[in-house]
Design a protein around this nucleic acid. Structure first.
Length: 289
RNA sequence: CGCGGGGUAGAGCAACGGUAGCUCGUCAGGCUCAUAACCUGAAGAUUGUCGGUUCGAUUCCGGCCCCCGCAA
């Protein structure tokens, strides 16, 4: 990579989406000077304190990591000494106060996987799937004080032919997002690109997904169920309840397909068991007549 | 020590203190124009692992390994 004047930027992110973007940037030979992520949290079956994916990623590459609990003035001072030209945010998980987004001379950009002002908020990708919005895209915007409200710097439309599972869509969007950033960042830094106010009237908002959203009614609409299964593939996963041996168990649907108005479930994880094929599930859990 | 479920023939499940049964699959034969359908028969399990209790454990107890659900 012949990068004569590398851009100094810090990266804010915490989730898998963030890491996918970092991966793509790295492939282009672009690395942040530091990474800011959320603090380690108890995770997994034994509630062991686990760092975010982004923290692990940065540690492996010897990139300085900050994981402040609160983004207060002392953190602002610390981060200011790093002299970044711009901050880049992707799925950070916390609201970043104005006192911090305005630190770098070229402010703070956010990669958001939807065509803003559509699908502002916490779950743009899941919402696109659930609403069957196949003409979607990614937006590079400058962060202001309100959630996903700032002016648009660049946008790329993406058409989805058929809905993949969430993780696949996420990866695609992250890669496209990173590429958009790579193309746009130099112009943004030298000021040759102008930002565009969002059409706030047209804005729609997405909610944070909760566990209960994953419950599906298998007697309901096959296509909506399919969309749910795809959208919630990573978390919380679409599930239904089944009575077995006098106990009510939760059964997660991990794989399904849809064709000719029919939903075909192919893989499930019954509670307390491992992942099995739906046929095995029907046999083993006395569902077959 | 966050809570809980589970590890039994290739797969999914059942049972029981006295060497284990069902469905599917597999193999052989039959039926059929034919078939993933049907009929008959067969093969296939040291019941996760180590130790303990017992006349005897797969079934009871304890340690270990592995898997999963909740929670986060």
């Amino acid at each position: 990579m012949s990068n004569t004047s590398p851009i100094r930027f810090s990266f804010f992110g915490s989730s898998r989406f963030s890491v996918l973007i970092l991966d793509e940037l790295e492939r282009a030979g672009i690395l942040p000077i530091s990474v800011i992520t959320t603090p380690d949290k108890p995770q997994g079956r034994h509630l062991t304190l686990t760092p975010t994916l982004v923290k692990s990623w940065a540690v492996q590459r010897n990139i300085p990591v900050h994981d402040p609990e609160i983004l207060d003035s002392s953190f602002a001072e610390k981060i200011a000494t790093e002299q970044a030209q711009v901050f880049v945010v992707a799925s950070y998980g916390k609201i970043i106060p104005a006192s911090i987004i305005n630190i770098p001379p070229r402010k703070t950009l956010n990669i958001h996987p939807s065509l803003l002002p559509i699908f502002r908020g916490a779950s743009p990708l899941q919402s696109a799937i659930l609403h069957d919005t196949k003409d979607t895209g990614i937006t590079l915007m400058r962060i202001d004080e309100k959630m996903d409200h700032g002016p648009i710097v660049a946008q790329e439309k993406i058409h989805v032919a058929e809905w993949p599972t969430y993780d696949v869509l996420e990866k695609e969007m992250a890669e496209k997002g990173a590429q958009l950033l790579i193309r746009t960042l130099p112009q943004w830094i030298n000021g040759s690109i102008s930002e565009q106010e969002q059409d706030h009237v047209a804005a729609t908002f997405t909610k944070k997904i909760v566990k209960e959203d994953g419950l599906v009614d298998l007697t309901g609409n096959a296509y909506s169920n399919f969309l749910k299964i795809q959208a919630f593939h990573t978390w919380p996963q679409a599930y239904f309840f089944h009575e077995h041996a006098g106990k009510k168990i939760r059964v997660k649907i991990t794989e399904a397909s849809y064709s000719h108005s029919v939903l075909h479930i192919t893989r499930v994880i019954p509670e307390g068991s491992k992942e099995i094929s739906y046929e095995d599930f029907q046999r083993g859990y006395s569902l077959l007549s």
